[in-house]
Design a protein around this nucleic acid. Sequence first.
DNA 1: GTCCTCACG
DNA 2: ACGTACGTGAGGACC
Length: 935
Amino acid sequence: MSTTFGKGCHLHLIDGSAFIFRAYHALPPLTRKSDGLPIGAVSGFCNMLQRYVEGTAGADAPTHIAVIFDKGSHTFRNDMYDQYKANREAMPEDLRPQIPLTREATRAFNIACEEMEGYEADDIIATLCHQARDAGGRVTIVSSDKDLMQLVGDGVVMFDAMKNKLIDREGVEEKFGVGPERVVDVQALAGDSVDNVPGAPGIGIKTAALLINEYGSLEDLLDRAEEIKQPKRRQTLIEKREQIELSKRLVELDCKTPLEFTLDDLEIRDPDPEVLLGFLAKMEFRTLTKRIADALDAEAPVIEDKAPTAPDAADAAQVEDIPFAPENYTCLTDPAQLEEWIAVIRQQGYVAIDTETTALDEMVADLVGVSLSTEAGKACYIPVGHTTGDGDLFGGAEKAEGQMDFDTCLSLLKPVLEDASVLKIFQNAKYDIKIFQNYGITVQGIADTMLMSYALYSGLHGHGMDALSERYLGHNPIPIKELIGSGKSMITFDKVDVEKATRYAAEDADITLRLWQKFQPELHREKVTRVYERLERPLVPVLAQMEREGVLVDRDTLSRMSNAFAQKMAMLEEEIHELAGEKFNVGSPKQLGEIMFDKLGYEGGKKGKTGAYATGADILEDLSTEHELPGRVLDWRQLSKLKSTYTDALQDHINPDTGRVHTSYMQTGAATGRLSSTDPNLQNIPIRSEEGRRIREAFIAPEGKVLVALDYSQIELRILAHVAGIDSLKEAFREGQDIHAATASEMFGVPLDEMTPEVRRQAKAINFGVIYGISGFGLARNLRIPRAEAQGFIDRYFERFPGIKDYMDDTVTFAKEHLFVETMFGRKIHTPEIAAKGPRAGFAKRAAINAPIQGTAADIIRRAMIRMPDAIADLPAKMLLQVHDELLFEVEEGAVDDLIKTAKDVMESSAMPAIHLDVPLIVDAGRGRTWAEAH
DNA sequence: GTCCTCACG
DNA sequence: ACGTACGTGAGGACC
């Protein structure tokens, strides 16, 4: 039955990883109906495999076939160069569990399925190629990976299944400018950013091919490097010789892999219908099962339409039964123990990590310890920076007993942290990766339980670890207060006793791991995997980098402003006291209310819930038509606000080391998907008032650089026009009209060229009102017109734009039915209050109407931010700040136009291709030495 | 800690 | 019948 591989045989080798990734990206995140297991990639993989086998049947059918997979993340190339493939992005979490299933699928098709520990699939393919060719057979490699092109020639061709194209010797020459036998020479010079092969800096494929063709081979080129005319190129080749030679060894495939099977084992075999259909049925692939059953002329097994089972009842119960037992938490002091932990981590491919530090501000925090957890209930803590006495780790204090050496610990952890193929699970990853960055460690390959919770439960509750642990694990973690106290007597973590720290820190890692296990299947069940994978997880390093950059703020400017404000306030205060007839604290609303309404007897004093008079700006404004005092108080309040919140407070936030202000962005702060900014909040720097706007003059670019502000024009209204399907609004946006004027024209029948500012202002207020879930009362208050008149405007608006009312009604209906609303990208915002009765129902309704619009805008700018670093990588520019619909950059003077063009393009195209908008997105640009000028 | 007020989109 | 524009964070007063 079995024949010996030889002349006339034709071996097809399928690059398994390529199939898997193509399948994963080509298909939506499908899940198995009965239990929510992600199976999109498996489904695509099976389809592709089946179609391939089907498509190759005929005259030149393969006699032998195999699917070759990678195994393990560590190969002999990592021993040569530890940075090899270190840039690889972490595997999406919903793909990981599908990998073993693709092996199972291959076997179910009765196709040979081969892999080797320590070798890449490419090496196995290379070895098989050589063997097959030596035996006189032919080979077709099914892959489009350029690393395999070196194997082409002498009966070996490649088939790019994506483009349905054969790649032969000419194809390789087209791609590399040299024949297959010189491909590795070109690759060694050109390097490869994807695999992190260094190559020769400044030399790409074109130049490399030119050089190789001129000198014949890489070795000759390097030997005769002195002869090269271009000085820069000559220098590079001489200085980087070793790096280039290393690169060649990295790209050269090993054709002597010690295989544990022979070519004869790969002989093509018919699948066993029972096994194959059994597997497909188990995966619950209805269409595919039926199609293959037909092809095999067999009976398709029945796939029951099982209702989803209770969420992993069995598994969950097991995990939840594992107690939180501090005795299973160990304190690691010996590097050998850590090495054992690392071996386990590498083996299983993931670990939960938490860092303990001396401060909440990552820019000034020192690392005190690291905790790890590899399975529920099991965790360790590595103390490295605990101190005794006064002073800190790097000055004054004594290092406490019983710890691991700081540098030893980090040098052991570094390769794991930087290896994107090992998943590091954090609660609030941004904090920890910034801490590790302080020590030159760039963490790659992260999961974040805080972001998972946000993607799953935004609007339902907060996403802090204590709350999540209590809610989802039924466990109250040790409060940090018990270790460091609170208030004035608070100590830093380095002063905490190592034993206590171990219990606390190990528990945090344990909890993080358990939350990850709990949330992972939920992401699929709730269909928010895409949101988490595309909108949340990739944003973390981007925000970390922006925070690290900070923005330059001029202390002198702020300090001068503070002084000027103080003087003016003192004068106003004197006047106010005189008008009041007594001295009082102008900053106390309570005292002010009593003075105005009780003592001076102003009309219209209204007490709120707490029994205090309301003294808000709107009330003082009304009073100021009758009295002098309220106007003075308004002026005083404005200055007080500017001084305390901005000109004084901002100075305190200037980092002494960098001279810049480093805000912190909270990714989970706003339910709609917006970011929020704290410490300091740089998203509410004044701009509306002339006095306040001047604070932006203190935000500057360093010498030789410029600030560039890019902001989306009317993004929320554009989204509204799209989602509500308002043709006239869409048309106005497409034609670049003044949207508020166009609205006014449509509503009041005033031609555009006769528009008055007053009518336009009213239309503008209505436009904004609509986004907020308009009410007659709210619009009346905003426009200071009678409520009936405001209601008349709204009625007319709905009449002219009937789609708006439908959109609002539909959104509320959807929210009531599902208790959440969605953005265009599928972000869910839960609206539990929509079921409430009474006044709360009104709030919830308006929030539900607003959330998809505000949230979609937030998603769009997030996508822009995620794509931005790569887009501007070659420009001398940094993205510094985000203010909801604006991005602020710092750019070298000469590159301003390039930056604006590139960044604008990224922003304007960021809705696509995930969603389609019927209206264009337009980004306005400004530049200047200060943020004030850039607007 | 909570309320009030006010800065931003 | 009720009280209302949506989403945030920070500072100061007051308990």
